[in-house]
């Protein structure tokens, strides 16, 4: 039993690592294509049919590029920072049930690495740790703009942790559990049971905060395009920069899994249809990340702070209070 469990877990970890590393690469392809189509362009077309092998070309480039450690940087921290980003992104995946359990060759597989009973807390915590990648990378870079970007990123991350936590508190009160599997079972009765109907405010707030947590476009302040340089990643090159990149895209995929699991019924009753439904919902949220990038401009950092502390946080608190009153009476 112990050995079987160990082997199963190792296989699951490897599969998740491989699939999501590949997805992070393919995600960049989708991002380029969709952004291009929305801007009436074609996107990558030359490498492979419809530019499909562009991902491979980028991978080769990232892997073979010289790994530059500039002078004056704090080398150990500079080197470890991208690893933190990528590792935390993948660590968060441990508590996410990607699919309903299914039977393969007479063996029941739970597509979740560790069904810990505090799954949501764990995911939020690990995402909070993810902040240290940009922060340490920017601080160790010996570059003013990296430092500024790291400070900005830290401010955004920490502020929006509050929104994430508070907005998710109300659904947690309703479900009475921190496990994502329990969340899923709470909503498994069909569309009418989805938490989004009873907690629409929490859903919108969590969704907004997801943009800040992943640093995607309306809140893309960690790598500020207006400075024409890549924020905290300015001094990075080759695969170290690639790790930041993979971390960002893996994070997007994981958040796109977490939102439907929390609010939109997850994989429902666990049938094939439910599993496909979860994938469809995940695809929509991932698509929305790209969609909003094409449509919306970035906000200023002070506007972002204003939005967080003066609008979203009061709304989240009011939402929690109202939920509490409704549950009490």
């Amino acid at each position: 039993m112990e050995t079987a469990y160990l082997i199963e877990t190792v296989i699951k970890v490897v599969v998740i690592l491989l699939i999501f590393s590949a997805l992070a690469g393919i995600g960049t392809y989708f991002e380029r294509k969709i952004l291009a189509f929305m801007q009436r362009r074609l996107g990558p077309m030359n490498v492979g049919p419809y530019g499909l092998l562009q991902v491979a070309a980028d991978g080769v480039k990232l892997f073979t590029k010289e790994d530059i450690i500039p002078t004056n940087v704090v080398a150990p921290i500079f080197k470890i920072a991208p690893v933190i980003t990528a590792a935390t992104a993948f660590m968060a995946a441990a508590a996410i049930p990607f699919l309903p359990q299914f039977t393969l060759f007479g063996y029941t597989v739970h597509p979740i690495v560790a069904d810990i009973n505090i799954g949501i807390l764990y995911i939020l915590g690990i995402m909070g740790v993810g902040l240290y990648g940009p922060l340490l990378g920017g601080m160790a870079s010996a570059n003013k703009f990296s430092l500024l970007s790291a400070a900005r990123g830290a401010a955004v991350f920490i502020s929006y942790e509050v929104i994430t936590g508070l907005s998710i508190l109300a659904p947690i009160m309703m479900v009475g559990s921190l496990s994502l599997i329990d969340f899923n079972e709470y909503q498994s009765g069909g569309i009418g049971d989805w938490i989004v109907w009873s907690q629409p405010v929490a859903f919108v707030l969590f969704w907004i905060a997801a943009f800040a947590e992943t640093g995607r476009t309306p809140f893309h302040l960690i790598a500020n395009d207006h400075e024409i340089i890549d924020g905290f990643g300015t001094e990075y090159s080759g695969m170290r920069w690639g790790l930041f990149f993979i971390g960002e895209y893996a994070n997007m995929f994981f958040i796109s899994f977490v939102i439907p699991l929390l609010f939109l019924g997850g994989y429902g009753d666990g049938s094939i249809l439910g599993a496909l439904g979860l994938l469809a919902k995940m695809s929509f949220f991932f698509f929305f990340f790209l969609w909003s990038r094409a449509a919306w401009p970035d906000v200023r950092p002070d506007q972002l702070m204003w939005l967080c502390w003066k609008v979203l946080m009061p709304l989240a608190v009011i939402n929690v209070v109202i939920t509490g009153f409704v549950m009490m009476f």
């Binding site: 969709i34 291009a36 189509f37 929305m38 801007q39 009436r40 074609l42 969609w291 094409a294 449509a295």
Partner: peptide, 19 residues
């Protein structure tokens, strides 16, 4: 915000590529 979303989605559906 939804106007912005609609505009880019419309362009994607029209697929009127200028490249």
């Amino acid at each position: 915000l939804f106007v912005g979303l609609w505009v880019v989605l419309r362009e994607m559906i029209k697929f009127d590529i200028h490249t």
